[in-house]
Design a binder for these strands. Structure first.
Lengths: 215, 215, 215, 215
DNA sequence: TATGAATGAGACTTCATTCAT
DNA sequence: TATGAATGAAGTCTCATTCAT
């Protein structure tokens, strides 16, 4: 059989290590915060020893930055394309955006990044800026386009778009933030199944954006 | 003589120590997190020495718990009473609730507690439970009553009340959370003046809760 | 009795600590080298704990630099003055210089610095430069003046002065260097009592510098 | 055919490994000291990997000892023979000894050993003893014979021979020690060309050893 | 033989906590 | 009470050494 040369395990590990370490680090940094997480824990969760971590990342801080840069904005490109290609009503576009936000980001481990930035932004100002530039800025821009499209097409009533965007994202971010923050000790907090909450949010938003009936 | 009236500064000073320490600790824990805050910084900000802090709080962890217990739910009693006494329309009640949330809590230093719980809940499960019992639970209960009142009176369309409450509070919590987290490095994040955002939120909510016109 | 206020011991220690640590560090760095000396050893020799050392010096490297700067060139000022004030023959001046070099420097703990610079100069180039500027340069300059004085006054035959100075200092430096390096294991190396060696060195030098008899 | 003559590079390569490692180790130990030199650096300088070094030397310490034993006293045998065979004047013998010391030892990489022993003797007492027995002892013995020959033949005045020997070697050792220690940062330290210094040293010594003119 | 990924003991450094003053 | 010098447990990081390939 072809049990041969499956790219020798030692080498395969070498390739896989950074990713495994980043995954472990993301989970622990999200759960306990940067300062309260010991590098040895990260290494152990990735199945290696303390020293091995330092073969791949020169310091704990470098590991943290890699975690952020690795996970920030990874899912944004797809969203941009999908929105650009959408042809239906703006209400449906908005609903679609909210749904896919959960399946593509909110429900994935990467969503921990949201809580992580809340917790650590003040201690890593350059990362906060990076996050702002790479994630927050583009996301808001995208949503502004969605809402503006609805207004332009007469599907939504006129509203201050930039401000509205905050109201659109708030429940999404709040959901993942609290899930990662209080999910462990107070599990009931989000037995409120996320998708149901998102559907309700979409309903409310769309109703709230209906143009006033012209008499 | 007037040697009495100015309430002897020295004595008052002593009485005030724990409070000053709690204020300093709140600010620093919110800004940098529990682990990254040094007790010496807290003491310095309160204008005392490191040793003095330990005269009032037996440990850093005890200080942290005191900060949380001191600030959690302090403004809730008033809100409960006001809502109970309110006699106008439910839309107005909801709007009033949102406005007073900002003036009584969101705009005060105590609002840092929201960010603090997000950051540290996982490391202090008993505090998270306390916060859940004393703050989250009662707040949601209060809001459920407000919404249910509207539904009962035919002012709001029927919605899943518990779920809706999450959508009501999300923008509020998100606002203070991000303000404390990213406010320093990305100030524009909340140049979106809070009250304007809250008014928009109230508008959207109330419109979104309008009963369907019965034909 | 006046057993009172003798500048409270705690305070006195505070003042004395840096000096005690520097002495301990000098001895250990000289004996084992910078890298092989553990800060805990230095602290222990100074009678304090590891942590205390870091109250006075921010890092091991800073401690090392302080050791060098504290001990470098401290005894040079006196020598400069004495030489300037000397009025006898140049042979006696040279002899006096060599003798006092031992009593003022070579026989003191500070002489360990000579071996320390030999061992660590390559690892601390800025310190080596400092040592060169503050110690080596001025010492050679001083000796050049001594020898030149002898030549100018016809007491010494003409020689390349700068080069000669190396021959004057070599036995002195070699003596302390080997004493600190091999003294422990091979004590016989310098049972050759230093002063006797210095006297012989002076004799040989002075004889070697006699002007040729003019026929 | 000539497939044989070029002494198969691969095999020779293998044979040469330990020697290349010893050369690399000597250079690095001299430059940075034992503790501050990383075995990986030694391996890299010798053109092999870290693991390979451990095929030839069981530990870093063993490598160090091999470096010392390999370089200590290698050039002594020749000197012994030359001195024994010499038939000219003792002044010329002394001068010849000093000159050949530089060409055979002081000017070669092996001279780094002198600085190495100064730096590390205290950490490796058995090596210090070995060095004492194999290098210092025999060298001094050899020089004592040279000087004693001069005294016996009436060419030198009587002096304490053992003590004088220290004065003979001091400038030589000092020269190589400082060259290896401070040569990098303060290059001017030995722009004083070594041979010129040695000639001056020989002159001074021989003059200093002239017998007093018998009146 | 040769490699270099992995290990873990050990070093430097920080900081919550203690305690003599 | 208040101080701040001192402590030492605990964390980050280094590097000699091992071992699967």
């Amino acid at each position: 059989m072809n049990a041969a040369t499956p790219s020798r395990p030692r080498t395969r590990r070498k390739q896989a290590r950074p990713g495994e370490l980043l995954d472990a680090a993301l989970a622990l940094f999200v759960e306990k915060g940067f300062a309260a997480t010991r590098v040895e824990e990260v290494a152990a969760r990735a199945g290696v020893s303390k020293g091995t971590l330092f073969l791949y990342f020169p310091s704990k801080e470098a590991l943290f930055k890699a975690v952020v840069r690795e996970n920030a904005g990874r899912h944004l490109a797809d969203a941009l394309r999908e929105v650009a290609e959408f042809t239906g009503s703006s209400a449906e576009l908005l609903r679609k955006f909210l749904r896919r936000w959960w399946t593509q980001y909110g429900g994935t481990p990467a969503a921990g990044l949201t809580k992580l930035m809340v917790s650590e932004a003040a201690n890593f100002p350059d990362l906060a800026q990076y996050y702002q530039n790479e994630v927050v800025g583009p996301s808001h821009e995208l949503l502004r386009r969605v809402v503006q499209r609805g207004i332009d097409r007469g599907e939504f009533r006129p509203v201050p778009v930039a401000r509205l965007v905050h109201l659109v994202v708030a429940p999404l971010l709040q959901m993942v933030t609290w899930q990662h923050a209080l999910g462990h000790c107070c599990p009931h907090i989000q037995e409120n199944e996320p998708m149901a909450l998102i559907e309700l949010h979409a309903d409310l938003l769309i109703r709230g954006l209906q143009p006033d009936p012209t008499p």
